[in-house]
């Protein structure tokens, strides 16, 4: 047992958007806090801090995670993708384009989480029905759009 070695602060290494970050932090900090406050990646939003809105969604090994309910220390060695890392070689992700062009963005506060959720979902299920899309993003609250254009934007990438 390594009981005695336990410290409250630790050096944590995170792989975010393909970059390694090493920093000293307390173990009780969430990934959301660390991304926003330590790494300056403020694209990940805090809408509720309690797992109920999806604004803080990031991808961990391709899966959607609520960063407000994830310990930063717990995702070391995992591939973390935030909205800032979605574009490839300067080229925006098709979902980003679709959201922009279809008017699926109003205030934009739900947008990063929504897009990442949609990405995780489409990667798994490239040809979903409208109902499946709705279900996939149903943990991501949007107060502005009424979801119509968000669902349209996501569906626009499916019928290929």
């Amino acid at each position: 047992m390594r009981g005695k070695e336990v410290v409250v602060k630790r050096i944590i290494t995170l792989n975010v958007n393909g970059e390694e970050f090493e920093f000293l932090t307390e173990v009780h900090r969430t990934l959301l806090e660390v991304l926003r406050e330590d790494l300056g990646l403020t694209g990940t939003k805090r809408g509720c801090d309690l797992g109920t809105c999806g604004a803080c969604t990031v991808l961990i090994e391709g899966k959607p995670y609520l960063s407000c309910l994830t310990l930063a220390a717990d995702v070391q060695g995992k591939k973390i993708v935030t909205i800032e890392g979605l574009a490839q070689d300067g080229e925006p992700h098709p979902l980003q384009k679709a959201f922009v062009q279809k008017g699926a963005i109003q205030c934009g506060f739900c947008t990063p989480g929504m897009i990442l959720m949609a990405k995780a979902f489409l990667d798994e299920n490239p040809n979903p029905s409208e109902e499946e899309v709705k279900q996939a993003i149903s943990g991501n609250i949007c107060r502005c759009t009424g979801y119509t254009k968000i669902v349209e934007a996501i569906l626009s990438l499916t019928h290929k």
């Binding site: 797992g51 959607p64 995670y65 994830t70 995780a120 279900q135 996939a136 943990g139 991501n140």
Partner: peptide, 12 residues
């Protein structure tokens, strides 16, 4: 399992 919370909660 798909009825628990929402997608991200199921992934976690």
């Amino acid at each position: 399992a798909t009825k628990v919370g929402a997608y991200a909660l199921q992934a976690m």
